[in-house]
Amino acid sequence: MLMKSLSVLAILSLLAITLPLAISDPRSVQDFCVGVNSSVNGVFVNGKFCKDPKLATADDFFFRGLIDPKDPTDTHRANITLVSADNFLALNTLGISFARADYEVNGVQPPHTHPRASEFLVVTQGTLSVGFVTADQDGNRLFAKTLNVGDVFLFPEGLIHYQANIGDVPAVAFTALNSQNPGLSTTADAVFGCTPSIDPDVLARAFKLDRSIVVDLQNKFKTASSFTAV
């Protein structure tokens, strides 16, 4: 009985050590792995083939395109320029991604989550209202701040968060995320715009709304344009 208890304890201890490693981007065991779309002279790592490091150049580690403001492309009056391992191949295996966020006056990034990354945001223009909400077991507490130029804010991994321009001029922010594939789930889109739709009677009970309101929201989010958030 004692040996069985020790075996269970050993397994639990091993899981406690290894699980944190399993739920984050793995550490690289090489200097870099510039992604390529061909298997020729490449090794498959993190979903991409690596360029032969002897063929890498400084241009592989250079990205241009974050200096110019971007026009909003959706109903939220905001635009996100995401830089990840998909469009900056040198980020492959390095466990990071970043983005520029442009907000028109009254622009907003609606509540959303990144299941695999925490996010660090710095404001370079304008004024933003930002915040995140803790998980249910932590009381669904809202942590919110008004940010001006030079201010930074951290959104912990997996928690619902938002940003909104509350100033009278366009706002700009830059963000960094600690995953090359942070993931994105926009809360309202996931609930009301998924395919196939969640039973509106279930949502009506869950949100304490009339069924007709739920159906109206489902129709609106089904036809809404796609949105990239950070």
Rank of each mutant, 00 (worst) to 15 (best):
A171I: 03
D102A: 01
S179G: 11
L203S: 01
K222S: 08
N140A: 06
A101M: 14
K48P: 10
V123Y: 01
T93F: 07
N46V: 10
V149T: 06
P20I: 07
N46H: 14
G150L: 02
K48D: 11
A229D: 03
A176P: 07
Q163F: 02
G47T: 10
V133R: 04
V149S: 03
A173D: 09
F227G: 03
P26F: 09
I80M: 13
L66D: 08
L121Y: 01
A135M: 05
P170G: 07
T73G: 12
F207D: 04
T146W: 01
F207W: 01
N87H: 10
K145C: 04
P110N: 03
V105Q: 00
V40E: 11
F44D: 05
F62K: 15
G126W: 00
D86W: 04
R77L: 12
P196Q: 05
F49V: 12
R116N: 05
L89A: 15
F153K: 00
I80E: 07
V45S: 04
T81Q: 12
T124A: 07
T134P: 03
G107V: 01
V191A: 10
A164S: 11
Q180P: 09
E157K: 09
D59A: 15
P196C: 04
D68L: 14
D136G: 06
L66Q: 04
K70M: 14
D68A: 12
N79T: 12
L128W: 01
I17W: 14
C33S: 05
A204V: 00
F174S: 07
D86K: 12
V43M: 13
L6I: 11
N181I: 07
L91P: 05
D210M: 00
V172A: 00
V123I: 06
D25F: 10
A135S: 11
I67L: 14
F44H: 13
I23P: 00
T81V: 13
D60Y: 15
I80Q: 06
V202H: 04
F221I: 01
D59I: 15
L66R: 03
L66Y: 05
C194N: 11
I160P: 01
P200T: 02
D52V: 04
R100F: 08
I23T: 13
D86E: 14
C33G: 03
L94N: 13
F143A: 03
L94K: 14
F227K: 11
A10G: 06
V152Y: 00
F155Q: 00
V202I: 09
D52S: 15
S7Y: 09
V29T: 13
F207N: 03
F155N: 02
F221S: 02
N165A: 04
D31C: 07
V45I: 15
D189M: 11
G107C: 02
T175I: 12
S7T: 12
T93N: 11
Q163N: 05
N87Y: 09
P170S: 09
T73P: 01
Q163L: 06
T57E: 15
D68Q: 11
L91Y: 05
L94I: 12
D25A: 09
Q30W: 08
H112P: 06
